[in-house]
Computed example of a mutant assay.
Amino acid sequence: MAKYTLTGQWQGGFQADVTVTAGGSPISSWTVAWRFSDGQTVTQSWNATITSSGSEVTARNVSYNGALGAGASTQFGFLGSSNGANSVPSVTCTAI
Results as ranks from 00 to 15, higher is better:
residue 51 T to L: 10
residue 62 V to H: 07
residue 76 F to L: 05
residue 10 W to L: 09
residue 85 A to N: 06
residue 22 A to Y: 06
residue 66 G to D: 07
residue 21 T to W: 11
residue 10 W to T: 14
residue 21 T to P: 10
residue 90 S to I: 05
residue 67 A to W: 04
residue 70 A to N: 13
residue 78 F to P: 01
residue 95 A to G: 00
residue 63 S to R: 11
residue 76 F to N: 01
residue 80 G to R: 03
residue 39 G to L: 14
residue 92 T to N: 11
residue 19 T to H: 05
residue 79 L to V: 02
residue 17 D to A: 13
residue 10 W to V: 11
residue 76 F to E: 03
residue 49 T to R: 14
residue 74 T to D: 04
residue 46 W to C: 00
residue 67 A to Y: 11
residue 57 V to P: 03
residue 63 S to M: 09
residue 94 T to R: 04
residue 42 V to F: 02
residue 45 S to Q: 14
residue 15 Q to G: 05
residue 9 Q to Y: 07
residue 25 S to L: 10
residue 82 S to C: 04
residue 27 I to G: 01
residue 53 S to M: 07
residue 72 A to E: 15
residue 88 V to K: 09
residue 62 V to Y: 07
residue 41 T to A: 10
residue 43 T to A: 09
residue 86 N to H: 00
residue 22 A to L: 09
residue 49 T to L: 13
residue 75 Q to L: 14
residue 68 L to D: 04
residue 64 Y to H: 15
residue 87 S to A: 08
residue 41 T to Y: 01
residue 53 S to C: 06
residue 93 C to Q: 07
residue 33 A to G: 13
residue 74 T to C: 03
residue 61 N to H: 13
residue 18 V to P: 03
residue 24 G to C: 04
residue 47 N to S: 12
residue 84 G to Q: 06
residue 63 S to P: 03
residue 8 G to W: 12
residue 92 T to S: 14
residue 60 R to Y: 07
residue 50 I to D: 00
residue 82 S to H: 06
residue 72 A to L: 07
residue 60 R to V: 15
residue 52 S to W: 05
residue 48 A to L: 08
residue 17 D to W: 04
residue 21 T to R: 13
residue 54 G to K: 12
residue 60 R to D: 08
residue 93 C to K: 06
residue 29 S to L: 00
residue 54 G to V: 12
residue 93 C to T: 03
residue 22 A to V: 08
residue 24 G to M: 10
residue 14 F to S: 02
residue 90 S to Q: 09
residue 42 V to L: 01
residue 81 S to H: 08
residue 41 T to P: 11
